[in-house]
Design a protein around this nucleic acid. Structure first.
Lengths: 165, 165
DNA sequence: CTTTCAAACAGAATTAAATTCTTTAAAGTG
DNA sequence: CACTTTAAAGAATTTAATTCTGTTTGAAAG
């Protein structure tokens, strides 16, 4: 029924809404030289074919009190597929673990951990993180300052297009 | 005029909208046992006093072609305030650098870099990143798999409240 | 070259949500 | 107790979202 490929207008649209979801269809239409209706239809299509996942509100977390952020690297004692899967499955359950990446290099995982202070961090690592099976070395690096945190990707027209994957 | 402190309803509201900005005021009101109107007023207030920064659309970046993500650590040759400021100021200008954190530990900065493939990564590091002043050691760790990436914070009632900071 | 079909679009019509306005009730203050 | 302030609800209004319909365009078919 509908094509799963994007044209330049779709890309422009994605670029705009990934920075600001509060723009109305009319406003977007003005920028892209289309009717508000047309924007609406395109956005619906982009949702259907999976380019748009959802929409969220960015909160100023700093206003809600103390915050300590760490990038914590984990090296497992055992590198079997089972151990890796196991650790990953468990570690993502912690609400303190905002992000978890399986990585190349000396350490197996990088976790972004957000807690309220060093006391809470210590409690978390010692009593909970280190208790997961096969956890070997844990290296903690703390954020002194967040200089940039961009959520919107630079969207480039892919050279191929026609992949609905 | 308006209080800058949050009550439980405000926190609930923030928890809900930081996960889904497409909920209508009426829907939110139903969940929180308030009128749609009341939700509207609260959200307006939360914007005014700076708890709500904005709203954005999450794009499925994977559908737009190849992607290689790296956590790249940088050690500067010189650790003077001036060098740090200088580096930070310049590095955040690169669109490939999605995130930049000033860190404790052996390395001064951690950068989250997103490019389309290893060729582009090499080009970026060699021709651009390494050319910034005072760049010493560069350590690249690549993401094999993203197991978790949560943008919504766990919002807890702060023990103090009354800070409009 | 003409016909046919499908897609993108614009504009009107409709529905639903956002926003404003007014009133009420509760809570705090002197 | 009178006075003020605040949160909230409900009605009224404005604006945006959504649906519907007709037109245009371009590509494919004959």
């Amino acid at each position: 029924m509908t094509t799963t490929t994007l044209d330049q207008t779709d890309l422009q649209l994605l670029r705009l809404i990934q920075k600001d979801a509060s723009l109305t269809n009319k406003q977007l239409g003005l920028k892209l030289h289309k009717a508000g209706n047309t924007i609406f239809n395109r956005v619906e299509r982009l949702k259907e074919i999976g380019y748009i996942i959802g929409t969220l509100t960015i909160i100023n977390r700093e206003k809600l009190g103390e915050m300590l952020t760490s990038f914590t690297s984990i090296q497992l004692k055992d590198h079997s597929t089972q151990s890796l899967k196991n650790f990953e499955q468990e570690v993502v359950k912690f609400t303190e673990v905002m992000e978890c990446y399986h990585m190349t290099g000396d350490f197996d995982f990088i976790l972004k951990i957000v807690v309220s202070n060093m006391q809470a961090y210590k409690e978390f690592v010692v009593n909970r993180l280190a208790n997961l099976p096969d956890v070997g070395t844990v290296r903690s690096q703390f954020v002194i300052n967040e200089a940039k945190r961009e959520l919107a990707y630079t969207l480039e027209m892919p050279p191929f297009h026609a992949n609905g994957q």
